[in-house]
Amino acid sequence: MNDVRPFRLETAQADLDDLRERLGRVRWPDEVPGLGWRYGAPLAHVKELAARWRDGYDWRAAEAEINRHDQFVTEIDGQRIHFLHVRSADPDALPLLITHGWPSSPVEYLDVIEPLRRDFHLVIPSLPGYGLSGPTTETGWGSTRIARAWLELMTRLGHDRFGVQGGDWGTWISREAGVLAPERVVGMHGNGIICFPIGAPGELDGLTEVERERLAFRESYLTEQYGYKLIQSARPQTFAYGMADSPVALLSWFASVYHEWSDGGVDPDRLLTTATIYWLTNTAGSAARSFAETPDTEQDTGVEWELKPATVPTSISVFPKDVLRPIRRFAERDNNIVGWVEHERGGTFAALERPEAFAADVRAFFTSLR
């Protein structure tokens, strides 16, 4: 099945009424005063977001904004794939495949579409099992399978050679596309990249203060924030019931991540748009299943996996509050790093937080390759 069909987001009013009704009868938990974010999203913060979601947020405006861009769906390897395909006015523009991470969607890139389309034909899919791609129906949708699906998608769109860009888990998927088809991928840009020390002799010698802080953050992440991944990778089905039945459960889970993995620059309405997409498509549980497929989970549980070297030219933009805070010497071990940009502000959702800086980095890197 190779057909690519136009798609338009059209939400039934009954679904919005149901969401609003649920938001109006929340059973709130208690909390210990004075803890702030130490135990997770504070009650006052979630109440404020939920009240805005119910009475101040305009989903129809968000829906219209998404629909201003050409969208399509197709089926690849038995899975529905939704994507934006925004063509540049320049017929010779480089195709650029952008992959989001968790808990995200193409909404993350709405603010950079216009500046980037001057130089690129943009292809921005929803990950399998996430949002408008709908739930997955089987296991196995790890980074390699998704990368293969992305290569098939670009073939169907007539893009023989193209660049790839990714954030969060999207960096790994983008990297995999380059590993699988280096003759097609002209370069890879990531805001962040997954890399870490492997215990080799002397690899920690001469680290700068900033690099040591990044290693320390990795340790604190594993002890304080890794619960997101452990729960979703170990018991995603049990986790899914609360996400499917309670919009506030979903909202609080996402709000915690957007707070802890960002630099405070995410527009609350962008967060609510992403939460609404996951709620309407009932894919928070399906997206959680993808955590059982990620490479570091496989490593943690003892399943053998091989890190294959990536040869395509790669540039990394490092944002200080990103959950991925790479150290260049570790990234260079298995990647062809030709560019490295350190930013003073920003986090995991760079296209939302620092759209101008994000777009400038992407444009500069791929321009240098051409």
Rank of each mutant, 00 (worst) to 15 (best):
A50D: 02
E114L: 04
P115C: 06
E63R: 05
H121I: 07
D111S: 14
V86S: 07
P106K: 05
S105V: 09
P125A: 04
V112D: 02
W59Q: 04
I98G: 11
I113V: 11
A93F: 00
A50W: 02
V107T: 13
P103G: 01
D55T: 13
G101R: 06
I113Q: 00
D92R: 15
H85P: 14
V123S: 05
I113R: 07
Q71Y: 03
R80N: 14
L84I: 10
P95E: 09
F72I: 01
I113L: 02
R52A: 15
Y109V: 11
D77H: 11
W102Y: 09
Y109F: 15
G56R: 06
A61S: 04
A50K: 07
I124E: 01
I66R: 08
V123A: 02
A93C: 07
G101D: 10
H45F: 15
R87A: 08
G78D: 05
W59S: 02
S104N: 12
P125T: 01
D77V: 04
E75R: 15
L97S: 07
I124Q: 02
A93W: 09
G101T: 01
G101W: 08
R54I: 11
P106F: 07
L97T: 10
E75D: 13
H69Q: 08
G78V: 08
F120D: 07
E63W: 09
N67A: 01
Q71K: 02
L127D: 03
P106D: 00
N67R: 04
E65K: 15
W59C: 08
S104G: 11
D111M: 11
G78T: 08
S126L: 06
I81Q: 09
I76T: 03
L97H: 06
A61T: 10
A62T: 10
R87M: 07
E108M: 07
D70R: 15
P95N: 07
S105E: 09
L96Y: 01
D55I: 10
E65S: 12
L84E: 03
E75S: 11
G40L: 09
D77G: 06
H45Y: 12
R68D: 08
E75M: 13
E63S: 04
V46Y: 12
Q71N: 02
L43Q: 08
R60K: 12
E48R: 15
H69D: 08
A61F: 15
V73C: 13
T74G: 00
H45M: 12
D55Q: 12
D70I: 02
L116N: 01
E65F: 10
